[in-house]
Write a protein that binds this DNA or RNA. Structure first.
Length: 405
DNA sequence: GATTGCGGGCGCA
DNA sequence: TGCGCCCGCAATC
């Protein structure tokens, strides 16, 4: 089996796909090449007519993973797995956040779940959601083919996506989890009720803890255990899957434009910072009002959360030509090491705080308090826990997951 | 509940 | 025959 440092040379060329593109094999060939000199780095966002050869030990390749929303398609060939792109779910009102970001949700893979998803409303403006189908392959969805052959997994993509990138699977999962958590901990949650009861019974000012709960958004950060577990799990999975497998896969620089791009956009969701302070850029991202949409802000903020918003004009991104983004654009990219991809670090959803300006000063204080609380629980939780989450906190990302108002 | 893989079946070119 | 698509099922998370 292939391992890092094995016979197979894994050159970190700018274009790991070059070899794949240059090869003459086709996924339908009876016999695929086995004298592979170079395997490719896993591509999260394969686009256009590309071919890749992955190691059979590549976890992502094993799972036929793609950050595009790909559904299984029956090609009546058990040797070749075929998947077709579902496109992206956009806001029917074509709304944007104040800073010009668009809503690009990940279509549910399951048909039923997708239909259900389309009955839901835009997390930004409460408008209808619309599925933007992929027509990048001669009017048909882009198709991806996977074929396991010996030590390698052959990948072939046909068609160029003619739509923006949806949120990644991790982002979508996080969004669902947060929505779930917010539903479970609505303002009428028992915890808040209890605080109010205590307050009314004692007639005293709320305790510091209770104050924190009241001033901040209790239902935004008082998460159920399973939610925390979910995020941790996602972190672990992503780390195991993409970063710490048998092969210490750093991403191939150039060819990984797509992944970097996804990274960039993901970062821009949760890691916006003011350039000067390095803190989170709170104001532009806060949809205190949303002219294009008429939905009440309370509704927006009721499920703020996790809208997947992509930078448009601000970062000069054209979602249809994402690869045109200059790498290392600090204004758009986060501070994570480039070796990390969005599948390494669970992309964090952007949480739109409830209307009005966000008091960063007191927010930071409460945030610090929250961190201390979490650190305590982290210590209580034992050694086995993933510490990445706290790193997120330190990185400020936690602000976006758990907005303070 | 959602995802994923598989396979039967249908229509079309 | 190849392709796209729909559907249902089972396993898994």
């Amino acid at each position: 089996m292939l391992k890092a440092g094995d016979v197979v040379v894994m050159e970190r060329e700018d274009s790991a796909s070059q070899y794949g593109e240059m090869t003459s094999w086709d996924i339908n060939d009876i016999k695929l090449p086995q004298d592979v000199r170079q395997i490719d780095w896993f591509q999260e966002w394969p686009d256009s007519y590309v071919k890749h050869i992955y190691s059979s030990e590549d976890k992502n390749a094993q799972r036929h993973h793609s950050s595009w929303a790909m559904r299984n398609t029956n090609n009546h060939n058990s040797r070749i797995l075929k998947k077709s792109c579902l496109g992206v779910v956009v806001c029917g009102n074509d709304c944007s956040t104040l800073d010009g970001r668009k809503i690009y949700l990940r279509p549910a893979i399951c048909d039923k779940a997708r239909q259900k998803q389309q009955r839901k409303c835009c997390p930004n403006c409460n408008g209808p959601l619309r599925l933007l189908s992929c027509r990048g392959h001669g009017g048909y969805p882009v198709t991806n083919f996977w074929r396991h052959e010996g030590q390698f997994i052959f990948f072939q993509s046909k068609g160029a996506h003619d739509h923006p990138r949806p949120e990644t699977k991790l982002e979508a999962e996080a969004r669902r989890s947060i929505q779930k958590a917010q539903t479970a901990f609505s303002p009428s949650s028992s915890r808040l009720k209890r605080i109010r009861e205590i307050e009314s019974l004692t007639g005293a000012m709320p305790t510091r803890e209770a104050l924190s709960l009241l001033l901040s958004k209790p239902d935004a950060y008082m998460l159920p255990a399973d939610f925390e577990g979910h995020l941790s799990k996602s972190s672990r999975e992503a780390t195991l899957g993409s970063c710490s497998g048998q092969q210490p896969y750093p991403r191939a620089a150039g060819e990984d434009k797509g992944s970097r791009e996804g990274l960039t956009w993901s970062r821009s969701l949760g890691l916006r910072r003011t350039p000067s302070t390095g803190r989170l850029c709170s104001s532009p991202a806060i949809p205190t009002a949303n002219p294009p949409c008429t939905a009440p802000s309370s509704r927006r903020c009721a499920q703020p959360s996790t809208q997947h918003v992509l930078p448009m004009a601000k970062c000069g991104h054209d979602p249809f030509r994402p690869n045109a983004v200059p790498l290392g654009n600090e204004s758009c990219e986060g501070k994570f090491p480039p070796a990390y991809s969005s599948s390494c670090l669970p992309p964090l959803p952007y949480l739109a705080p409830q209307g009005g300006p966000c008091p960063m000063g007191s927010g930071a204080q409460l945030h610090h308090q929250l961190l201390e609380t979490l650190r305590g629980s982290e210590r209580d939780g034992g050694e086995g826990r993933c510490h990445t989450d706290l790193n997120y906190c330190n990185d400020g990302t936690f602000f976006n997951l758990y907005p303070l108002r």
